[in-house]
């Protein structure tokens, strides 16, 4: 598990990865009238709906942040939902990633390890678009943005490593275990409710709070809220620890993928 090997192998195919990410995004909107505009429209409409339903109709306020206006709860939810959606896309599409391209496995010399990069990249693109919409709404509602917004890339870095590792493992396992795709649908639901996305961490009763401590997604969600909505610096020691942990997990996932890759052609 030499990290250098990882980069030596993937660096030369970065152009291919970028091209494929583009293709993946294009494929999704191909043939639709509005095209990539949908990527913006979806989060925008969702944000407006959340504001309307939670902020205006139910008059709910995000606990711990009662001062924020009617958009307060919607943007808090969104700070959680954006990273979650990136995760969910990787988790649900991961198992089918390699299975979907038998030609690449069997008929051409293709660096299959690019596929997880492509999936994470494509999911990240959609996350970024949603994030841009979120920033627009926050700016519109409050008239300002905290400078700490610039720290978001650092805050989501551990999650991206984790997702990459996860996708390496899922896309490989999905080849051998075809029911994984079904299972992941359930897992994402559990993660949605097991992570302080729809509620703040403080709402969790004592012992359950420990759940958050070992959930890297929870750490990401909380710190995104911190830097985007509260204008506070992120949890720096946490960032270091999580980066190290997820980095190792990513390399482990990569090693697993490379080890199992030779058997793909036998079963696809």
């Amino acid at each position: 598990m030499n990290p250098l090997l990882f980069f030596r192998r993937l660096w030369p195919v970065r152009g291919l990865a970028l091209k494929m990410i583009r293709r993946d995004i294009e494929t999704r909107y191909r043939g639709s009238f509005l095209g990539v505009l949908w990527a913006f429209l979806n989060p925008l409409v969702m944000l407006l709906l959340y504001t309307l339903v939670f902020g205006v109709i139910m008059k709910a306020r995000w606990p711990g942040d009662p001062g924020a206006g009617i958009t307060g709860i919607a943007v808090s939810l969104f700070c959680g939902l954006i990273p979650y959606n990136v995760f969910a896309e990787c988790a649900t599409r991961g198992p089918g990633l390699v299975v979907a391209v038998p030609n690449y496995v069997k008929r051409v010399v293709f660096p299959l390890e690019v596929l997880p990069l492509v999936l994470v990249g494509s999911a990240l693109f959609h996350g970024l678009v949603s994030f841009a919409v979120l920033l627009g709404v926050v700016l519109f509602a409050t008239g300002s943005l905290a400078w700490t917004v610039l720290l978001v890339p650092a805050v989501v870095f551990p999650m991206l490593l984790l997702l990459l590792g996860l996708t390496f493992v899922l896309s490989s396992l999905g080849v051998f275990l075809r029911d994984l795709g079904q299972g992941m649908g359930l897992v994402t639901q559990v993660v949605l409710f097991g992570t302080p996305i729809l509620y703040p961490r403080q709402a969790l009763p004592g012992p359950l709070g420990a759940l958050v401590a070992v959930n890297p997604l929870a750490w990401t969600v909380e710190n995104v809220r911190k830097v985007v909505l509260q204008g506070k610096a992120p949890d720096w020691p946490g960032l270091l620890v999580w980066s190290a942990v997820t980095g190792l997990l990513m390399l482990a996932g990569y090693a697993w993928f490379m080890k199992t890759k030779r058997a793909f052609a036998d079963v696809i």
Binding site: F176, L177, K259, T260, R262, D266
Partner: peptide
């Protein structure tokens, strides 16, 4: 040699 395993899962274990 092409090895045929009963299930894909068996193939993974064989690895």
């Amino acid at each position: 040699a092409y090895v045929r395993h009963a299930t894909p899962w068996e193939r993974l274990k064989a690895l």
